[in-house]
Design a protein around this nucleic acid. Structure first.
Length: 828
DNA sequence: AACTCTGGCCCGACGG
DNA sequence: CCGTCGGGCCAG
């Protein structure tokens, strides 16, 4: 099978890879059946997994193979060495041949085929031409749809004008891609129930027990399939949704497979590890043949042959999603935990074993789970699906991968795509390693380089405090100071005096770095364009929603780009770049503090990219801001003005009250998720009092109020009036119990007690425990009674918690309670 | 195999 | 009794 090179070029998707003097590209995706190459894959652009290494000596043998269509020489930019290199591109009809065909590559290719089927189904369902959706997902240039009000958001033209010409193509392409409307996905949520084997969880690798219920929930249908197993069917017909009772399991499973096939997207919670895996293996066990089964198992993921499976557990577990997209609104990574936090809804609770539930209750329980799963994807205008799509566009990665992989993989994918577009070589790890390590000493033991600067706060209460903030500081520095793996410590002699302060690294003057261009253009679009658009009330709700999701997506990429540079397994890991970024950050904030001094502005506190200034005039703020823009090249904006701020002597610990009475709390124990609800409640009541303070004189009243509050608290604790649930500390298991060696923290001790009673404790679970008077001094909340509680320990904890707050107000817990009062309580 | 970084606070375990 | 360290959570 021979094809012309022109035809090949159009369908090339893989990329360059080189190893010593044998440099070559491998490519893929000639579809034997269809007799053509897949076009859309060029557009999504990248498939890092296809790389393979071949020595020059092997080329002869390759040329003779029948799957090899042609070997061509091609020139690529070698960014690291600032030159062009020749490499060989092998065009083959069999991608497995060159990759050596190991299992993961085979799996991957199967998965890609599933992707293609999905996109085809999707387009077919909506009556789209094939190309329509490809364009959307691919990053191909599409005109921006919306007129932008110039007053609110900077127009693309304006942004272009303010940037050097190198940024123009990037800005245009991003704007066009990100302005494209977001489509919705037809999808169904699925959940299965399997009877427990005597206290043990069902094992998806060895599915001994039958699947007793499967529920489906979508915008058009909700239904449950249940297995009769000799149970009474009473009540099943009268339920307000269809419940289908099956007499035998194979028929049930076949019906499930058929239903899965009806949808291009299936959503589960933990379907990768459990639901789909169990279904697949159970179907095999009862003799359903492979061709009837749409489920495809991979090493970590479970996928669908015809479509896309999204496992929300994997998605919500992603820390970038948790922190930047959902502002840490959930911490527990269970369906119940996330649903309670985001939907304000819970799983159904029941007593005993799931297998013993009567059919109607079993159906309700099962359907509720898929309903929660479905609603997690529809809440807030389907923000989850939209985020997946936006990240997919920015990262040039299919949504099923986006939902499972971490942010460093998204960035890798995005940067690979940019390299291919430029026709540039992607550097190898060892080449990047030659850039050198860090030259600064980290403050924290065990860290690789020195990070952000935290200013010692001036303890006390200050009225009228302005907070200035560098807008997207690290991405700005990466842009302005041209930071990239190939520009930091570049090979040119004349650049070596362009040193980054506080490091031994220098930066290239000859040309713009690729990560600087990409990150820089994304930053400008977010700060000047998309962020303002989310607040523009003249736009329709849909448009604002689009811009909001785009803005969130950009934020994730921007925030993580710097961090990824210092992450060992990141494809573009380059310590000098991460270090230079942080060093320039310290330089910027230090210089700005110096400038404030010259202008007679008192700096009360600052952390990495923010400065707290004591009653500066509007003029002074404008002066500093203008100076930063001109001198440092970074935007310094007024973020907010506090009515008053209270600092203790602790860094990263303060609270402030805004003019409207809102209280901002940073770092204080009282707001931490592990703090018992009872103490949190008291803490917030105290803050409520403080939020009403308008002037210095008001503090006296606040003090009396808080005193009463704390006396009540101690009384309640001593008098055992607080239910154990409200006294529970909630701490996450970082790993499973047996992996804690050498030390056993309290939450692990509590977790072990639960394990003794046959409960399985997984990493990521939140353990709720109370502190008790007798060994082992902790009890899981389920097992604890009010009498067990060690009230003194709680008072001690409250003591330190409130001192964080009261320190700043210049009174202490002891003082407030009065030594005698406290003595009374101690002995009482 | 793991899935962005460093700085900082607090508690409790552990070892001398 | 005290210093150090592991662990967790948070700020940015």
């Amino acid at each position: 099978m021979t094809r012309s090179v022109e035809e090949m070029d159009e369908s090339l998707l893989a990329s360059a890879f080189y190893d010593g003097d044998a440099r070559l590209a491998v490519l893929k995706f000639y579809d034997q059946k269809a007799g053509r190459f897949w076009h859309w894959k060029d557009n999504t652009g990248h498939r890092p997994y296809c790389y393979t290494r071949l020595e020059r000596s092997e080329l002869g043998a390759i040329a003779d193979r029948k799957d090899v269509v042609e070997i061509v020489e091609e020139e690529k930019d070698d960014l690291l060495n600032d030159g062009r290199v020749k490499l060989r591109k092998i065009i083959t009809t069999d991608p497995l041949a060159i990759g050596g065909g190991n299992d993961s590559i085979r799996d991957k290719i199967r998965a890609w085929e599933a992707d293609i089927k999905y996109y085809e189904n999707y387009a077919y369902d909506r009556g789209l031409r094939m190309g329509t959706y490809y364009r959307v997902s691919s990053g191909v240039v599409i005109p921006v749809k919306h007129d932008v009000p110039a007053k609110v958001a900077m127009s693309l033209a304006e942004i272009l004008k303010r940037n050097q010409p190198e940024f123009a193509p990037y800005l245009k392409e991003w704007a066009e891609l990100l302005g494209e409307p977001l489509c919705d996905f037809r999808r169904v949520a699925l959940d299965i129930e399997v009877a427990n084997e005597a206290g043990r969880l069902p094992d998806p690798e060895d599915p001994k027990r039958p699947v007793i219920a499967v529920s489906f929930f979508s915008d058009t249908e909700k239904l449950v399939y249940v297995l009769r197993e000799g149970k009474d069917t009473k009540g099943v017909e009268t339920m307000d949704y269809p419940v289908k009772v099956f007499e035998d399991e194979p028929t049930l499973l076949r019906a499930v497979m058929a239903k899965i096939m009806d949808y291009p997207v299936v959503v589960t919670f933990n379907g990768d590890d459990f639901d789909l895996r169990y279904l697949k293996h159970r179907a095999e066990a009862v003799g359903i043949v492979e061709s009837e089964n749409p489920i495809q198992l991979e090493r970590v993921a479970s996928t669908l042959k015809h479509g896309v499976h999204i496992d929300l557990y994997q998605f919500f577990r992603n820390r970038s999603i948790q922190v930047y997209a959902f502002s840490n609104r959930y911490t527990d990574h269970t369906l119940n935990g996330i649903s309670e936090a985001l939907l304000n809804r819970s799983k159904i609770e029941f007593e005993g074993e799931i297998g013993d539930l009567p059919l109607p209750e079993l159906a309700n329980y099962c359907l509720n789970d898929s309903q929660l799963t479905y609603e997690l994807t529809t809440m807030g205008g389907s923000v989850v699906m939209k985020l997946l799509l936006v990240i997919s566009r920015i990262g040039k990665m299919p949504i099923n991968d986006v939902s499972r992989l971490g942010v460093s993989n998204w960035i890798r994918s995005m940067l690979f795509y940019e390299h291919r577009r430029l026709g540039a070589l992607i550097p190898r790890q060892d080449e990047l390693g030659e850039k050198g390590g860090a030259s600064s000493q980290a403050i924290i033991k065990g860290k690789k380089y020195k990070g952000g600067l935290v200013i010692e706060p001036k303890p006390g209460i200050y009225f009228d405090v302005s907070v200035l903030d560098f807008a997207s500081l690290y991405p700005s520095l990466i842009k302005v100071y041209n930071l990239s793996y190939e520009t930091v410590n570049c090979p040119h002699e004349e650049c070596k005096d362009n040193v980054v302060p506080d490091t031994t690294s220098w930066v290239c003057r000859r040309r713009k770095g690729i990560t600087s261009l990409v990150t820089g253009s994304l930053r400008d679009l977010r700060v000047s364009h998309y962020k303002p658009l989310t607040k523009d009330l003249t736009l329709s709700k849909e448009d604002r929603e689009l811009y909001n999701v785009v803005s969130q997506g950009l934020k994730v990429f921007l925030n993580a780009t710097y961090g990824a540079m210092g992450f060992e397994t990141f494809a573009f890991y380059c310590l000098p770049v991460a270090e230079a970024t942080a060093a320039l950050g310290r330089y910027a904030i230090t210089k700005t503090i110096g400038r404030c001094g010259e202008l007679g502005i008192e700096v009360l506190y600052g952390d990495t990219d923010s400065l707290f200034l004591k009653s500066p005039s509007a003029d002074q703020i404008a002066t500093v801001s203008r100076w930063a823009d001109g001198e440092l090249g970074v935007e310094l904006d007024l973020d907010k003005v506090y009515r008053y701020v209270a600092f203790s002597s602790r860094k990263k610990n303060y609270f402030g009250v805004l003019p409207d009475g809102t209280v901002d709390i940073r770092g204080l124990t009282g707001k931490k998720s592990q703090t018992p609800d009872f103490l949190k409640k008291i803490f917030y009541q105290a803050l409520e009092t403080l939020s009403k303070v308008q002037t210095v004189d008001d503090f006296e009243k606040a003090r009396t109020n808080i005193k009463g509050l704390l006396a009540g608290m101690i009384g309640d604790l001593k008098g055992r009036k607080v239910p154990v649930e409200e006294l529970a500390f909630n701490v996450m298991m970082g790993k499973t119990t047996e992996k804690y060696n050498g030390t056993t923290p309290q939450h692990v001790r509590a977790a072990k007690l639960l394990e003794d009673r046959g409960k399985e404790i997984k990493a990521g679970e939140i353990i709720a425990y109370v502190k008790t008077k007798n060994p082992p001094f902790v009890k899981p909340v389920e097992l604890a009674k009010v009498e067990d509680v060690d009230a003194e320990k709680y008072i001690e904890y409250a003591h330190s918690m409130f001192d964080q707050m009261l320190d700043a107000l210049d009174f202490s817990f002891d003082e407030l309670m009065g030594a005698t009062t406290l003595d009374f309580f101690w002995s009482g």
